[in-house]
Amino acid sequence: MGTLERTRCRLAAHPLALDAALAAGVLACMIAGSFVDPRGDNGVSWGVRTPDPLALVLMTLGALALVFRRRAPRTVLALTGTVSAVECVVGDPRAPVAMSAVIALFTVASTTDRPTTWRLGLLTMTVLTGAAMLGGPLPWYAQENLAIFAWTGIGATAGDAVRSRRAVVQAIRDRAERAERTREEEARRRVAEERLRIARDLHDVVAHHIALVNVQAGVAAHVMDKRPD
């Protein structure tokens, strides 16, 4: 087994640890993004604002929920969507709490069927974008509101693409396993047929020799008295 395969096995054996590492990375990205001012005088700039305490709490809650994204993906989506909607309404300037909802939506889309992905994806996009446009402090046409719409759509689309790819790979594996089983069954059938043919040939040879012995014994009994030699 190669190094890549061993790494995959270790990661598959510790999904909770992997999700915890992902949650920590998402939290770090959200905190780093909360220092960015997208509406500065010279465009996007760093280190010009301090995250609001409520935004830090919401980012932490959203990241903590991602630790359990594989065990309860829909519940995690509901929790991250709620904290993201709260930030969309009260955040000014807004922190990137919606990143956790995008990850949760990706997880749901990659682990469920396409109709469910459409329903939950459209619901998440509508709620978050509607909260940002209608309840937030920014104008409805602000680029931050459009970004929420775009990122939630990307999360749902990417998750659905991953699910489709997994389904294709699984279908290929199933076909390969069926073909392997068919080859094994064909080999066993041919072995059984060859054994049956050998048994029939052996039966014919033995029957022929027994018939010959019987004929010879009958002839011997007939001429025993006249020609004992």
Rank of each mutant, 00 (worst) to 15 (best):
M1A: 08
M1R: 08
T7G: 12
R8N: 12
A17F: 08
L18H: 04
G25Y: 04
V26I: 07
V26Y: 00
A28E: 04
C29S: 08
C29V: 07
D37T: 11
P38E: 01
P38I: 00
R39L: 06
G40I: 01
D41W: 14
W46C: 06
P53F: 03
P53W: 01
G62D: 01
A65C: 08
R71T: 13
T75S: 14
L77C: 07
L77T: 03
V86I: 15
V86F: 10
V89R: 10
G91Q: 03
G91V: 02
A101Y: 01
A104V: 04
A109G: 05
S110E: 06
S110M: 06
R114K: 11
A131I: 07
L134Q: 08
L134E: 03
G136Q: 04
P139C: 02
E144R: 10
A147T: 14
A147F: 12
I148K: 05
F149T: 01
A150F: 11
W151T: 13
G153V: 00
G155P: 02
G155Q: 01
G159V: 01
R163G: 03
D174Y: 07
A176P: 02
A176N: 11
E177H: 13
E180K: 14
V191F: 09
R195K: 11
L196S: 14
A199Y: 07
R200T: 14
L202W: 15
D204A: 13
L212R: 14
A217H: 09
G218I: 06
G218H: 11
A221I: 07
D225I: 09
K226R: 14
